[in-house]
Amino acid sequence: MNYDILLAGFGGQGILFAGKILAYSGLMDSKEVSWLPSYGPEMRGGTCNCSVCISDEPIGSPLVVNPNVLVAMNTPSLEKFIGTVQPGGTVIVDSSMVDIKVERTDVKVCYVPATELTSTDPQLKGGANIILMGKLIAETGMFTTDTIKAAFEKVVPAKRAHLIDNNLKAIKTGMEYNG
């Protein structure tokens, strides 16, 4: 198992949190993991990306340059990173935020209108990032839902425990989405 994951979008879309969930899931499965955010003066609205490595082996550079999994939550991110994806890699796109199609044929692309899906259910509000994680694990088999659940329980502070169910529902929504 060796995943080099790049998540990218606008600040405020939950890119870093989604990455954290993946990293914690790796931790739950006793894998080697690393999580590296892009950092800059901008807090919201600026571009944001996050490198996550999950492996059976110790992790060298934590900076993902050629991902085998790309999650793109806006058009500039997809345009910027699609050329860097390893052949045979998986690309998850929030199609409600991205108005272009991937031309490459050597990668698997899943279009999920994640942001749109959140508008129909108050429980999914703000959960587009997590819906995409659901699709990601369904496509790659990276983690079981039990592992994801354990990760949420570890990450979400006790006083916000009620959010765990919402997040798990978002995971399920993503896993079951077939567009």
Partner: peptide, 10 residues
């Protein structure tokens, strides 16, 4: 350096 400071690892 900034990379070690910002990255998360077990």
């Amino acid at each position: 350096d900034g990379l070690l400071g910002q990255m998360m690892e077990p």
